[in-house]
Design a protein around this nucleic acid. Sequence first.
DNA 1: GCGCGGATGTGGACGGCGTCAACATCCACC
DNA 2: GGTGGATGTTGACGCCGTCCACATCCGCGC
Lengths: 238, 238
Amino acid sequence: MRRTRPVPVDVFTLLTSSMDSQRAGYHHGNLREALVQAGVELAREGGPSTIVLRETARRVGVSPNAAYRHFSALPDLVDEVARDSRRRLAEAMDAELERRTPAADPGLDAVGRLTAVGEGYIRYALAEPGLFATAFPTGGKTPAPEQSGQDPAPDEEGDEVRRGPSAILQEALAALDAAGLLAEPAATATFNAWAGVHGLALLLLGPYAELPEETRESAITDGVAFVVRGLTTAQARS
Amino acid sequence: MRRTRPVPVDVFTLLTSSMDSQRAGYHHGNLREALVQAGVELAREGGPSTIVLRETARRVGVSPNAAYRHFSALPDLVDEVARDSRRRLAEAMDAELERRTPAADPGLDAVGRLTAVGEGYIRYALAEPGLFATAFPTGGKTPAPEQSGQDPAPDEEGDEVRRGPSAILQEALAALDAAGLLAEPAATATFNAWAGVHGLALLLLGPYAELPEETRESAITDGVAFVVRGLTTAQARS
DNA sequence: GCGCGGATGTGGACGGCGTCAACATCCACC
DNA sequence: GGTGGATGTTGACGCCGTCCACATCCGCGC
């Protein structure tokens, strides 16, 4: 009944042992990460509820229960995928920030940066609805407090401290504040800015999906401008 | 094998036949509504994913497959529960509107009305997180277009046309416009206002849950004020 | 060198889920 | 008063998450 494994894992391990991320042990060395990536793939296809343990294991080529050596249960895996999705969101925001050509005037530049951050947030949500939904789950299930702002804990990811989405937003607001343009206290501003952009993204994904391409585009820029304008005292034209 | 039903339905029917909503026929007369209400109860306990066909039927005291005589599949039932949740949200907004004492100046009054609508929206979300999550589902599952704004279709609910949440918002904005205080075109204003309030609600339910009671309270009023201020040209103090 | 123990992965089973097909029941209407 | 269509039930299938017992393999101490 108990035959020895039909080899594919050995082959895989040998093929990838030198280039792969971790020590390529025998037991498929570095499952967990493989499971998380398969989970990301599932989440991309249909949101958090599409992450299904058995299918995830199947895609990695492993038995369902193998996952229990690395996650205490399914929600644990989903949490990990959520963290990954937030990391990707932060990367998208940074990318939008770098694509931008800086302005001479520091105030104008700060406004531009904040706008880029907001648009990056929304564009990621629209480009990866499944991952975005996974990153900020809703549904009243009381999703385990974790970290208050859901940014990575300061010690996460080894020694490299990763900025999360809300940290990036706070940076942009700090620049605005430094230019003397921030109209409210930093905490309130962060909250209101995040809320505005988050709501825009969700409306565009939900009730306002089906908007024609160009209408949606102007809704994004107008919406973000609306939020930015509300945060600034004296405003500038970009 | 095939015994006749063990009576409870007959008893229930007899007991409630005179007071219940519809004709109390024999076949448990008016399942569907009973299923929807049981679904509402489930949704209240844990959001849309808690609505489970078998349990819903169990609570109504009926076999699982009976539901298929009234809904083509589970998502159909969930949709119905979502509609009901949106109706309740609209009622909560209206209630907040009526609790308010009107102001003499029409501009001030319009601002107050808009504020009440926004706060009503958020307070409902916080009071009934499960129903709110069901009313506006997220998750990237492409939830069937239905109606663009997800307000009830004009012919819904017999001859009584019911205003949905976004219709109520539009009314408040129309009043503001009539007072000459609306800063942007109605469509844009609706979208931005909804986005702001929706984002506030979701942040308070998600990343910003765990806020102490009074901090949350000021976040609500400050947040709504932020949105209202952004929508108005010249502003007033309430 | 070698063997053993803990980490990692497997197989089988259980109960719960959504859904389908076949069958039973009962009201309404002729 | 009998019958047909609406309504509800039973049983089965294939998924799911999770538990338990067992197999496999690596690394460490001898």
